[in-house]
């Protein structure tokens, strides 16, 4: 052994296995079934939209991320791109999907200082931008296509041109039907995803299973989806009990729209969620409550995005208010 082969480093000298890239890439890997089901339901359009939003997210990260192409290695920009794509309707023009990804990473993450510094979930910020900029395109839902190979909309519309939408191709989401036409959708269709909606809004069961896998690997904090789904279930059960005709029951509320995707993949973004256990419960319960408020009494049919973004803004305060009790200072109220 020569002296040059030896190192002298600070303790501890051993590390637990997980690294930030392994966490991020395991989230990407867990999305494979979700992406696969989107492709199954929406055909080539799903592939195109997901590719465009992911490319949109990767471009600014590699150009402005500070470490060049190495900035992509941690996997966080890829997650943003894929998640954004999953919130979009399959027929959206690709240039919009690309722009949304670029906005999410550029203004949602890089201007704050990059990985770990952002306040808002970048994928949702990208979607919020698209919703403000292209309100029609982002709420144009396809009906079932005749063949799997058919595009579900004018994916190849040129930038800054309005996409052509044949009337026969648009359908409505279960939430839209509920809100604007007082129609309900059968529960099993909701769980399995055989309904209209965004790419990742469809099969709640698949997302739930992927979330269980991530929770088991401790790559997401189970308290967040548990409290979101718990509070949605609780409040919708109460309201349904009050007026069953006006307020849908918990199964519909849990499995419709983007709630599963939001609860499992968006709200659990480590950077933009609280670090304390109690904080996670408060954060999740707040999201669930806001989702119902927006869905039932707001102007929009779906409220997951704004609910999460609003609670993202409160995270620093939640963290401060839920600091654990220091060992040896009994009687100040504890965290367990």
């Amino acid at each position: 052994m020569t002296a040059s082969t030896r190192i002298v480093s600070a303790s501890p000298h051993i590390k637990q296995g997980d690294s930030t890239p392994t966490i991020m890439w395991s989230v990407v890997a867990s999305l494979v079934p979700v992406v696969a089901s989107a492709i199954y339901f929406f055909g080539p359009s799903a592939i195109l939209v997901l590719a465009a939003s992911t490319a949109g997210a990767l471009a600014p990260e590699s150009l402005l991320g500070g470490r060049g192409a190495r900035s992509l290695r941690d996997g966080s920009a890829a997650i943003t791109g894929i998640l954004l794509g999953l919130t979009l309707p399959p027929g959206i023009p690709l240039w919009m999907a690309f722009l949304g990804g670029a906005f999410g990473i550029g203004f949602g993450k890089l201007v704050f200082g990059g990985l770990g510094q952002n306040v808002f979930n970048p994928a949702l910020l990208g979607r919020a931008f698209l919703q403000a900029a292209f309100p029609v395109a982002i709420t144009t839902w396809p009906i079932r296509a005749e063949s799997w190979w058919n595009l579900r909309g004018d994916n190849f519309a040129l930038p800054l041109m309005s996409p052509s939408v044949p009337e026969a191709m648009t359908g409505a989401t279960p939430l839209g039907l509920m809100k604007f036409e007082q129609m309900t959708t059968p529960s099993w269709d909701l769980m399995l995803g055989t309904t209209g909606g965004s790419l990742g809004e469809t099969s709640g069961l698949i997302i739930l299973i992927c979330g269980l896998y991530l929770a088991a690997r401790r790559h997401l904090d189970w308290r967040i989806p548990a409290s979101i789904l718990g509070s949605v279930a609780l409040f919708s059960t109460l309201l349904h009990g009050l007026d069953a005709a006006r307020y849908p029951g918990p199964v519909f509320m849990l499995f419709s729209g983007g709630l599963m995707l939001g609860a499992v993949y968006m709200a659990t973004d480590m950077v933009t969620s609280p670090v304390t256990h109690r904080g996670c419960w408060i954060f999740g319960a707040g999201i669930g409550f806001l989702v119902l408020v927006i869905r039932l009494w707001g102007g929009l049919s779906e409220g997951v995005m704004y609910a999460i973004l609003l609670m993202n803004a409160l995270v620093p305060f939640i963290n401060r208010a839920t600091q654990p009790r220091i060992f040896g200072t009994l009687g100040v109220g504890g965290e367990s």
Binding site: S19, T20, P21, I23, D74, S76, G114, L115, G116, Q117, D221, M270, V271, S273, P274, V275, T276, H277, Q323, P324, R325, I326, F327, G328, E335
Partner: peptide
């Protein structure tokens, strides 16, 4: 090294409940 991603694992691990 990577930037902190606020995963909160250090809070879970700290035996004297620091942040």
């Amino acid at each position: 090294d990577y930037p902190c991603i606020r995963c909160g694992r250090c809070l879970d691990a700290c035996p004297v409940f620091l942040n």
